[in-house]
């Protein structure tokens, strides 16, 4: 256990420079294109006092590295500034608020994705080259090759427009939908979650199939079968556990990405999550907000990768944390 704690501590220490470098690159790039003064320059009635106010507010007379240091210093204390393009809202609570909305899609979607990806991947691998394997493979390729927005709009048209009388699914976010009846909650969430599930499951099931195929063709599985263990037990107990290891890495990335907001899906379903907020922040040149969301996503990625590393050890005791 001490080794695990030491490992975690070491990983956290190594992520700090990673985080600094990553956020600096994003900060420098965003700051170099997001110039609040350029926008103000098109404002006929804005005078020099307005320029001075912005220069003072955003330290625009300082070099970008110094501005980054100021920003990081404040961010470290939880002060991520205000978002001028969102009614001067405080960035941190705004990001948290939207993150909760995103999580309402991301968590159920991830649970379904994880279950389906494993089930389809294992089934497809165990029944390699069967009709059902071809079917699942076909589904996966459609899911991987079809752009997300096509799925999203198709689902809207089919379930919210054509078959509205049967399904009555909501084509976009319904205000306060999470406080309504179960039926309302389901109708509000079903289409965006299905979109996420279709797109991500398609890719993950292929990973799981490939991983499972490698495992079930390995010597120790053949030995287990030769010793007379039932196929089901061999696959689920001995095969699946090892085949999960590559998928855990993918899960860590996908779950962090889901929690960081799906720009396309959330935009099409007008879901007030992090995705559209980030898009808006970038288009409007809102540096504080862009950095706040990027920081949040970066922390998610680092956190879930750390979790994934720890899960490896649970799945495969041979892995040591040194």
């Amino acid at each position: 256990m001490i080794a695990v704690f030491a490992y975690v501590a070491r990983r956290i220490m190594t992520t700090i420079p990673l985080l600094l470098v990553g956020t600096f690159i994003v900060y420098a790039l965003t700051a170099s294109v997001a110039d609040p003064l350029a926008k103000l320059a098109t404002c006929n009635q804005c005078d020099q006092a307005a320029f001075d106010r912005l220069i003072d507010l955003y330290d625009l007379d300082k070099p970008i590295p110094l501005r980054y240091v100021y920003w990081m210093r404040d961010a470290a204390t939880g002060d991520m500034g205000q978002a001028p393009t969102e009614g001067s809202a405080e960035v941190f609570p705004l990001v948290m608020d939207r993150a909760i909305n995103t999580a309402r899609l991301a968590i159920p979607a991830f649970l379904i994705i994880a279950t389906l990806a494993v089930a389809l991947g294992v089934y497809s691998a165990v029944n390699q080259y069967s009709k059902s394997d071809y079917f699942v493979t076909g589904f996966s390729f459609v899911g991987i090759s079809m752009p997300t927005f096509v799925f999203a709009l198709l689902l809207q048209v089919i379930f919210a427009v054509w078959w509205q009388d049967w399904f009555d699914a909501k084509p976009f976010y319904v205000s306060q939908m999470h406080t309504g009846s179960i039926s309302e909650v389901v109708r509000s969430h079903i289409l965006p979650i299905t979109t996420l599930v279709l797109v991500i499951t398609a890719a993950e099931s292929r990973f799981e199939r490939a991983s499972m195929l490698e495992v079930i063709n390995s010597d120790y599985i053949r030995t287990a079968r030769a010793k007379g263990l039932p196929r089901r037990r061999v696959v689920l107990k001995h095969g699946l556990r090892n085949a999960m290891i590559p998928l855990v890495t993918i899960w860590a990335i996908d779950f962090a990405a889901l929690l960081g907001g799906s720009v396309v899906t959330e935009t099409i379903f007008s879901w007030p999550g992090l995705g559209p907020l980030l898009l808006r922040a970038i288009f409007n040149g809102d540096l504080n907000l862009t950095m706040g969301i990027i920081m949040f996503i970066s922390l998610l990625v680092i956190f879930f990768n750390l979790i994934a590393d720890l899960v490896y050890g649970m799945l495969d005791p041979r892995i040591r944390y040194e």
Partner: peptide, 18 residues
Amino acid sequence: INWVTDTDAQINALKAGE
């Protein structure tokens, strides 16, 4: 006023009665 960014989604919303 519902903020629906995507134009196709706006039309879907109109056709769906939302």
